[in-house]
Design a protein around this nucleic acid. Sequence first.
DNA 1: TTATCTTACTTGTCATAACAAGTAATAACA
DNA 2: TGTTATTACTTGTTATGACAAGTAAGATAA
Lengths: 245, 245
Amino acid sequence: MGSLSSGNMSHLPLYMQIKEALKKDILGGHYAPYQKMPSESELMSSFGVSRITVRQALRYLHGEGLIFTSQGKGTFASKPKATQDVKYLQGFAEAMGPKGYEASARLISIREMTPSREVRSRLNVLAKDGVVEVVRVRYLNREPVSVDTSFFPIEIGRKLFSKDMSGDIFPLLENELRLELGHAEVSLEARPADANIAKLLGCDSGSPIMWVQRLTHDRFGSPVDFEYLAFRGDTYKYRFQIERS
Amino acid sequence: MGSLSSGNMSHLPLYMQIKEALKKDILGGHYAPYQKMPSESELMSSFGVSRITVRQALRYLHGEGLIFTSQGKGTFASKPKATQDVKYLQGFAEAMGPKGYEASARLISIREMTPSREVRSRLNVLAKDGVVEVVRVRYLNREPVSVDTSFFPIEIGRKLFSKDMSGDIFPLLENELRLELGHAEVSLEARPADANIAKLLGCDSGSPIMWVQRLTHDRFGSPVDFEYLAFRGDTYKYRFQIERS
DNA sequence: TTATCTTACTTGTCATAACAAGTAATAACA
DNA sequence: TGTTATTACTTGTTATGACAAGTAAGATAA
């Protein structure tokens, strides 16, 4: 507790190793919620680094909601939440896997098509260019929970026809297509299920679903994936943390 | 463009002044989307500060999604979005006001009560201590959009009986009660409206509503406000940005 | 006793310095 | 001509140092 593991991540920056070490301590319960953590000076000594490195590690911990600071008083551990990393862009299986759920997907259809006006404006493509539409049903412990309709620009989408779409799309884009994903814009609203979605999700038509639109960009800001996600209201909950000001 | 205004914020830290100056330039269109911004060296010269200060300003701009960086290439302006500040903790009127909506609230009830188990565990209080429950209906352009049920620890809640509850609660907590708000945990799900909520919102029982739970902490991490927010599904959309990894 | 001051410790801000690492254009070489 | 090195510029990481500002506890003075 409170030292570099010097294991398999010696290639990582120091501040990242320190962040991970402290994160492990916090999540492992060595620092109880609201308990004071070692001061920056103490961390400098125990890790043998300068203050700027300690502070960078603490900044990342703060960004993950694991600690909070009070000038003049110190740094304190937050109450750890299983949901706190939901503020990062994750696919369905990525988010559910570590929680012990069995996540899978079934491909309903994949085709080239002429994009709607909304898809055109989101992906920033012309109607004549066309897009690739992928429709899938996602399962959690064999229960259907969402219908995902994804639209890709034609150059990206054509590469997907030969891929296995039964898992998450984000890792596929990152690893097999070598796309570096950046930020995403998400909107959520509650709306009634239409007949098609109700059939695929095995619920009643008109029952509440969480209707999510998600536009994912690469790290240069170019759109790579626009999705409609329809979650069954009784099986899915979206959680995250936000900061004041 | 590219200099400190030295106006009314000379008390703010240098990096914050620089952040605001650059933000104004970006939002003002001086740096078009995907256009290269001045390098850190150039910003050091033009603002007359050290690199650590420039980088701290850039870090905040990055956090707001206004810029992105590429090692070896430079710093670039992102495409500005009207929705990007939704990732910060805001009340209803705060969020809607700048968009030209007329937001108001009607107080349904305010009372001391024995908290439920969920409210107890969220606010971290004992059953014998009691809490204050505030129920309000929120309107947008005179249309009801949400039923807000808020629970406060007894010491905070008792101060609310004499306050005007027709606006937002967050500014009230901050200004009149001198509470410094910190982070909040939010969860969203779609569920059917019960009879009581349907009546207050003027919609059908069973129609989809967005069910939001929000636990707000002060900047020291102590919970100050736990709320159930029931939004009419056809009038509310929740939007925000998230980052990959 | 009560109020004020000092002191020590905390995080917050900022400067100067150096080197690593990724990128892109140019220069040298085959 | 085509390929490889060099070079200059970019952001990324880290060290050392200093002072500001907020907090809390103990010492001092009223």
